[in-house]
Amino acid sequence: MSIQHFRVALIPFFAAFCLPVFAHPETLVKVKDAEDQLGARVGYIELDLNSGKILESFRPEERFPMMSTFKVLLCGAVLSRVDAGQEQLGRRIHYSQNDLVEYSPVTEKHLTDGMTVRELCSAAITMSDNTAANLLLTTIGGPKELTAFLHNMGDHVTRLDRWEPELNEAIPNDERDTTMPAAMATTLRKLLTGELLTLASRQQLIDWMEADKVAGPLLRSALPAGWFIADKSGAGERGSRGIIAALGPDGKPSRIVVIYTTGSQATMDERNRQIAEIGASLIKHW
């Protein structure tokens, strides 16, 4: 067993022997301040990774656009098919120029040779490549099948209805392509620590998230040296922004954090800054 596999296998073990965790309302004060600064709703939840206990939450059962955070769930569904012998990570998928959609920095470079399922998941999570996500959605049967996968996990809230990039439209009061912070946090925890996926697939999923290259201005910008984070960000229309993450000190994750916002007129930089400040408060009061 590799060191990384050992780390993920012992996530519940280490967490069980940690000192009790206590909620700190100071972080919620910052979440509410972010709402004021952005002029928009902000949803927040913080779960203990081992027990699933909610440590703090704000608007945990209000719907927010998922945006690209759905790509972690998508690759979880792909990995479940791999575990069941219905898919192979090494299978190569070929596609054409007509398949390319807006923001496809990886797939646009491989029109000639195609990409493997493993490479597509890596591109979808680490670079948020939209064509990679659409190609992977095709392998599982489309958005409705991802929703069905989530329902089978016990998540009857999260739903995907459309493809990239239309799913980022974020129309107010439109339930399409949305989740709730509580539902997303619980589902992410199941994917990373539950028995739904094999140990190898859980490790692969967290490795992809740990290698995320496009979430630097968010929670990662607030992390002290030595902290662990595996995350996936999302951005959408109407001032929408979000991030889902597993993080913790001492090089291992111990909490799940989900943050979503929508309806702001603020710039992307300002949305990023507010999420980073929430992260800084979380870490300060850990």
Rank of each mutant, 00 (worst) to 15 (best):
C121R: 00
G279Y: 08
E210H: 15
P224M: 11
A185S: 08
T147V: 06
K71Q: 00
K252T: 11
M67Q: 11
G279M: 11
D155Q: 04
T112Q: 04
T158V: 11
N134W: 07
W286L: 06
G194F: 09
A132P: 00
N130Y: 00
A266S: 05
P60N: 14
A246K: 06
F228R: 15
C75I: 10
I45F: 14
N98D: 13
E237W: 13
I45N: 13
S96K: 07
R241A: 14
L218W: 13
G216V: 11
L167E: 11
G279R: 01
L205Q: 15
P25A: 12
G43L: 01
E145N: 11
R255Q: 13
G226Q: 10
A230V: 08
Q88E: 15
D231L: 12
E164L: 00
G234Y: 04
D231P: 12
P25C: 15
E277Q: 11
E237I: 06
W286A: 02
W227L: 01
K190N: 11
I244N: 14
L100Y: 05
E166I: 10
K32N: 13
Y95C: 06
L74D: 01
E62N: 02
K232F: 00
E108F: 15
A235F: 13
H110N: 03
D212T: 07
A34Y: 12
W227K: 00
S240G: 11
E87Y: 12
K190S: 08
R241I: 11
L218Y: 12
I243A: 15
T131H: 10
G90V: 12
S80V: 13
W227N: 01
V106N: 15
S264W: 04
N134A: 07
W227D: 01
S68D: 00
T158C: 02
D212L: 11
E46H: 14
R81W: 12
P224K: 10
R255N: 05
G154F: 10
R162P: 00
L120D: 01
L218M: 11
P60I: 15
A200Q: 04
H24L: 08
T186W: 03
E87R: 10
I93E: 15
K284G: 05
S254E: 05
P143C: 07
D129R: 00
V258I: 13
E237H: 14
H151D: 07
M184E: 01
D99Y: 05
D113M: 02
T198E: 10
V82E: 11
A40T: 08
A133L: 00
G234T: 01
D174V: 11
D161H: 03
L28M: 08
Q86F: 15
N168E: 10
R238D: 02
A132I: 00
L89R: 09
A225Y: 12
M268L: 13
I256H: 01
D250C: 04
G263A: 08
L120G: 04
N168C: 07
L196M: 10
E119K: 14
T186E: 15
M209R: 00
L196K: 14
D161C: 10
V117R: 07
P65Y: 14
Q204M: 04
S51N: 10
N168I: 13
I54Y: 12
R91M: 07
L218V: 03
E270Y: 05
L89E: 05
L74Y: 00
A148Q: 11
A211S: 09
R59A: 12
P253T: 11
S233M: 14
F64Y: 10
N168F: 08
I171H: 15
Q203A: 02
T107Y: 05
M184S: 03
H156T: 13
V157T: 11
V157F: 06
L167C: 10
P165M: 15
I283A: 02
D48K: 05
I259T: 03
A40F: 11
V258Y: 01
R241M: 09
L89H: 10
K32P: 03
A185Y: 00
I256E: 13
V31W: 08
D269N: 08
A246P: 01
R176D: 13
T261P: 01
K284R: 11
E108Q: 13
K190R: 12
L192R: 01
E270P: 04
F58K: 15
P253E: 02
D269F: 05
A200V: 15
Q86I: 12
I244C: 13
E119I: 01
A200F: 14
M66H: 08
G251S: 13
L111N: 12
R59Q: 15
I54R: 10
L218D: 04
Q88M: 09
R118E: 13
P105M: 03
M127K: 08
R238Y: 15
M268P: 12
E35G: 10
R59T: 13
T138E: 03
P60M: 13
M268I: 15
Q88I: 03
K144R: 02
E166R: 14
E119T: 09
